[in-house]
Amino acid sequence: MIKEITLVAGALFGILAIVLGAFAAHALKKKFTEEQLKSFETGVKYQMYHAILLVIIGLNFPLVNTLELVMVAFIIIGVVLFSFSIYGLCISSSNGNKIKVLGPITPLGGLCLIIGWVLMLVVFLDYGKYLGA
């Protein structure tokens, strides 16, 4: 089940990254400042990077132990908190009504992504014990 969730999340994040990137490049380009556009694009890039990562994880990891499950959870939660808080901040501030509560959420999302990557390193090191490395 976690394998399917990982692959579906990766595919959905990838689709949304393309849609939101195109939306920003066309519909929001005239509405956003240069800084807002760059921030929005950062959210899209990180979302796409992690979409690809989730697909790779779903196809290559057994996803049977708790460490792997927690790793995937941190990555999924990190994408939602990081990228979607950036989108919310950019859109709300361009409308003149910045949702300030989203500001502290972005670094929490980044921290979740970092933890996900650290857990991946731990998983790799753990695999090394079994692979004779």
Rank of each mutant, 00 (worst) to 15 (best):
A9T: 09
L111W: 01
L20P: 03
P62I: 05
K30H: 11
Y49D: 04
K98I: 11
G110M: 04
K98S: 10
V80M: 12
L81N: 08
A73G: 13
K45P: 04
S83M: 05
V72C: 07
W117F: 08
K100D: 12
L59C: 13
W117L: 12
M48E: 12
Y49A: 06
S85T: 03
I2F: 09
L89W: 01
F74A: 09
A11D: 00
L121F: 14
F124R: 10
L59I: 11
C90E: 14
V8P: 04
Y130V: 14
V19A: 15
V101K: 14
V72E: 05
L20M: 11
N60W: 10
L111Y: 03
E34Y: 09
H26P: 00
C90H: 02
V101D: 12
F40Q: 00
I56T: 11
T6Q: 08
I105T: 07
I2K: 07
I15H: 09
K3Y: 05
H50S: 07
G78M: 06
T6R: 07
G10L: 08
I18T: 06
T6C: 15
Y127I: 15
S92I: 09
E4W: 11
C90Y: 04
K129E: 15
L113V: 08
L119N: 02
L121N: 13
L89G: 01
N60L: 14
G109D: 04
Y49W: 08
M71P: 02
L67C: 02
A11T: 10
A73F: 14
F74N: 08
L119F: 10
T106H: 03
L113M: 14
K38R: 15
M71E: 08
V64H: 12
L69G: 08
G10E: 06
A17D: 01
S93N: 07
I77L: 12
Q36M: 01
L7F: 08
G103H: 03
L54C: 01
S94Q: 09
V72L: 06
L119W: 02
G14H: 10
T106Y: 00
L53G: 10
L16K: 00
F32T: 04
G116Y: 04
F61M: 15
I2E: 11
S39W: 02
L81D: 02
I2V: 09
I76R: 01
F13P: 05
W117H: 04
V72S: 03
V79D: 03
I52E: 03
E34I: 11
L131P: 06
W117Q: 07
F82M: 10
E4Q: 14
N97D: 10
L111M: 15
L20Y: 10
L69N: 12
H26R: 00
G14F: 06
I15T: 15
H26C: 01
V72I: 09
L67I: 11
H50E: 03
V55G: 06
I99P: 01
V19N: 08
G21K: 03
I105Q: 00
I56Q: 10
E35T: 12
G96I: 01
Y87P: 01
I2Y: 13
M120R: 04
F82L: 09
F74M: 13
L69Y: 13
V101N: 10
E41D: 14
G58H: 04
L12G: 01
N95M: 15
A27Q: 14
V122R: 01
M1L: 12
V80T: 12
E34P: 06
L12N: 06
